[in-house]
Structure formats: C-alpha cells, structure tokens
Write a protein that binds this DNA or RNA. Sequence first.
DNA 1: ATGAAAGCGCTAACAT
DNA 2: ATGTTAGCGCTTTCAT
Lengths: 321, 321
Amino acid sequence: MVSYVLNDNPNVKVPGDTRQRILDAVQELGYVTNTAARNLRTQRTNMIAVVVPDITNPFHTVFARGVQRAVRGQGYEIIIYNTDRNLNEEHISLRFLQQGWVDGAIITSLHLQPEDLLPVLEKHIALVVQGPNIMPDCVEEYPLDSLYVDDPAAAETAVDYLIQQGHTRIGMIAGKAGTPPRLRREQGYRQAHYDHNLPVDEALILDGNFKEEDGYHAMHELLKIRPDITAVFCASDLMAIGALMAVKEAELRVPDDIAIIGYDDIPIARLVSPPLTTIAQFQEAMGERAAEMLLARLNDEAPSRGRREEMPFELVKRGSA
Amino acid sequence: MVSYVLNDNPNVKVPGDTRQRILDAVQELGYVTNTAARNLRTQRTNMIAVVVPDITNPFHTVFARGVQRAVRGQGYEIIIYNTDRNLNEEHISLRFLQQGWVDGAIITSLHLQPEDLLPVLEKHIALVVQGPNIMPDCVEEYPLDSLYVDDPAAAETAVDYLIQQGHTRIGMIAGKAGTPPRLRREQGYRQAHYDHNLPVDEALILDGNFKEEDGYHAMHELLKIRPDITAVFCASDLMAIGALMAVKEAELRVPDDIAIIGYDDIPIARLVSPPLTTIAQFQEAMGERAAEMLLARLNDEAPSRGRREEMPFELVKRGSA
DNA sequence: ATGAAAGCGCTAACAT
DNA sequence: ATGTTAGCGCTTTCAT
C-alpha cells in the first residue's frame, strides 16, 4: 500500500485521503526508501557507472558530464569510478560492476581485454565501451556496444598537417607503451610519414602517460636528444600543454621554432598561449551518445549483438601549429 | 559456512580442504557477492560518496583523488557524485545519501545550509564538509566535521599583494552571487582595500561561476566599463585563465598592463603563460585529510561533536602578477 | 480498497 | 566443524 503510493504504481488505485495520510506520515517521519532493499527486491538499481582512467583529465570528466546530461531525466543517476590508469584498479572496477551496484556501465579503459568483460556481461550488466581497446570482431558476438574515434586516421591527419607545413623532423609524445590508444596513434604517425616518403626516426617517439608532466619531461628529453626537431605531435592535450611549457623554458618559440599539435580538444586547449592546435574528439557528445546506446540496451531496444560506432574527429587549427 | 570463508571471518575455523572446495566452487561458478543483499543485511556498504559541484574543475577532481588515495586500502571505495553547481542537484545528492548507498560522504557544496544535512545525519551517514558553507556554530552540536580554508584571509593576501605592487584599481571576478565562498572572498578583497585606505569601486566586482568562460566574459566586461584597471583578482584559476585570454585578446600584456591572480592552484595554473600567480589550496592534501576525518568517524574514533579544521593556503608567486 | 506474506541474497547467531 | 535459519527493507502477488 505504502509502496504503491510512493512509487506511483498505476495499477493500483488508492483513494485520495489514504494517499494523503501516507504522504503525511512519510513527511513526518522523514522516511526515505532504502535502496539496498529496493535494489535487492527489484533487481534493478537505476544507477549507471562511468568508469574512467583519470578523473583529473578534462577529457574524461567532460565525457562523464555528457553521460550525466543524457541519463538525467531518464530515471538514472551516474556514479563515476576512477581507476587512476592502473591495471589492477581497472580489474577492481570490473569486480565492482559485478557486485550489483549498477544496471549498466560505460567504460573507458587502457588495459582491459574484451574477455575480461565477460563475467560482467554474464551478470546482465549492460555495457558500452569508449575507446579502441575493446573492439575486436569477437565483441560483436556479445551484447556490448563500442564507441571509438578512428585514432590512426586522426593521428595521420595531425602529422600530415605538420608535414604539409614543411616539417620533416617531427617528434611524437605517445601514450603509455603497449596500450591500444598508444599503438593506434603511433600507427597514424607512421602512416603519415610513409605517405610522404619520410623516414621515421624511432628515437623521436617517446612514451607518456597522458598527463601534463609526462609531456613536459618528454619534450625536454626530445629537445636534448634531437635538438633539430621542429614539431611534435602529442597524444593528449595535457601532454601538449606540458610540452608547450618545456619548449618555452628552452627559450624556443611556438610555433616558429617548435610546432605542437595536441589531441582531445579539452576546454583549456584554446586558452593556453599560443592556443593549441589539436584533434577535437567532441567528448561531451560522445558521452551523450554512449549514454543513449546504454539506455537503449537497458530498455531492451538494442540488438543482442554489439554495435560499433565510429565517432567523428576534427583537426582544429589554432596557434600552436 | 560459505559466507565465513568468503569474508575470512576470524571467529569461525574452517578446515583447509572444505575451504578449498568452497573456493573452487566460487571460482567455477564465477560467483560474486551481491552487494545489495550484503549491504541490506550488514547495514554497511563500505562505500563513500564524494559530492562535488563541478566534475570538470580540476580543483574538485584533485580533491577527490586525494580522498580516494586515503581510503584505498582501508576497505572503502569512493563514488563521485556531481551536482553541476546546481541547487536542485545538490538537494538530490542529499537524497541520494539518505538512500543507503554509502556509509559516509564528503560534501563540497555551494548552496546547502547546515540544516539541510540533518536528515542525512539522522540516517547515521558520516559526514565531512569541505568549504565554508556549513560552519556556523550550530554545526558543532552535530557529528559532522568541517574542513575549510580561511578564504577572507587568502583573498586579502592576494589583493594586498597587488596593492603592494602599486595597483590601486583592482577588479575582482568573484564567485556566484550570494554563495558563501563568493561572500568570503569578496570580504577579503574589501578588507585589503580598507587596510590600505583604498576605496572600493563596486562596479569592479563582477559575478562569475568559477568556469573559464565566466572569467573570459567578466574580463571583457571589466575592460569595457573600467579600461583603467591594472589588476584583477579571480576567485578561481579557471576564471583567471579565462580572464588571461580576454586580456590577451584585448592586446594587453600580462602582467604589465593587467596583473592577474587566481585561486586554487590547479595543475594547469603553472602551465599557462604567463604562469598564474595564485592562492594555493593544496586540494589533494585536503582530500586526504577529509578522508581521514571521515574514516575516524566511521570507526567511531571521532568526537560526537563536529570538528572544524582550518587548512592552509599560500600565495604562489608566478608570472601573472 | 486494503492487508498479509513471500522472497530478493546475504550474514551471523544458533543448533547440531 | 558444519547445517539451519531469521531477518535486513522493500515490492508485488495473492487473499480478503
């Protein structure tokens, strides 16, 4: 009875005065539904997890905000789960997803393999994956959607642009060694060189972990070992901004002495000086789209096989290259 | 029995072979504890919420990371709940806290009043509040800790520094009108003027909502209505960076034509050019301290009356002022 | 229209 | 050492 009123159950008619008495009592007692009990009973939580590798990187938080805006008003709340770009934490996050906290999740991961997700799917948690990690063909056999940008093409576009500007000795501050995003962007870098018959100097490709300080240190290193480079392509805006600082510290000018291109187009990119030329990924829209796909799955409106959806990118030309 | 093994209950001895059989079966079946059931039964969740007003502002995410690092290894996970700086969302977050998702929460809020938190406390959710909102004396009567920076003193320090540099017409891009952080920083701005017998020009104090674009627009406005200002104090680094951009667009130099001081010392502050002079708040340490206070409360090691703890700030002199 | 009760999956107390 | 069971707070079916 009380439950009917609180949940506005349309199948049961409750007379106005009874309803009012219930509402009054609820008010009086400060009663709030215990969700652990409700979730246990209904086997639903109306909660969605957004698993991100670095909560201090605007790319991920803007993405998460996109998700939040799309699910708000659809009866879902979001929880943001931070893995700190850590392999072990990523596995712990998967465990978290299996424990029944959420109905579905949108995962951005660096290290996870598709098969790692199977236990989660078996618990009937709806899943959407952002990024290139989880997109082998096998995925299409599972009810799991994937959303990604064509990284190789994007990276190629960036490096191609640099080459067209006359640069021939172009550094790359890439992602974490061995991870798919890193590999894919590096591939685009190589392809652009190949297309222009330019040799690739392996020493020019440095590791980074997507943060400012990684870009900063890598740029200093690059300047030390190859002082003759004239441009650098960074796998994240944060690293590009760090690189920018290193270049300035070396009393070199951007873009005249060193041209820089970033990746992501985070809000701050247009505000550094010179403003950053970068590959825009439209992360807020991507978050919204990821949420739509997940909601469709939660409402059983999605095909049982996974869908792979490619998202657009765009070279945004500003002042740094 | 199974439960004893899985939870390593020290009160019950389980022989090695039985234990192993259980573990094998768990492995085999891919069994994972359903937390809704466990939480319902134990009345604990081992989950802590970090409620933040803007998940895209590095101040808050770095703070959240501090919390996460401190509770990791103590058996707690964190959930980040974003309110988008929205009054209504802040109230919804309080509802969320009452629903039994978490054992405790660390709240950073713009709009909430102390009494808004009472229903949450009545549900025996441990609470720590970051920021100056919730710190009237009444708080000390409740089991609720508060962590804050002396904003008036910090703002005064910043503005005092500008005055000492010879500035007399100093703008302020303040927080959201009517909110405590705004009021407190404005108070420091006024105090610094008062101390130096400088009049306050009310038209120089503009609203902002802590984001880049707010600083950008406010600065343009400021330059239009009072072209003779020579310095501006911003209530957040993000706004300071927006202001920096506006100044550059106006073809003015920083700090020669316009000096700028920010607030927060977010990671990007040192990377813009010129690097931002700002009030550091040591948000990661603050997050860790907030977590410690909360953990103490969760372990019943905290006094039943609230503690108020003042955190340090520091004027970090870089290039912008 | 309302009341009663089963049962979601787990833990912990109790019985064997 | 192991098996059994009550009950956490809720939703929903069934009975009245």
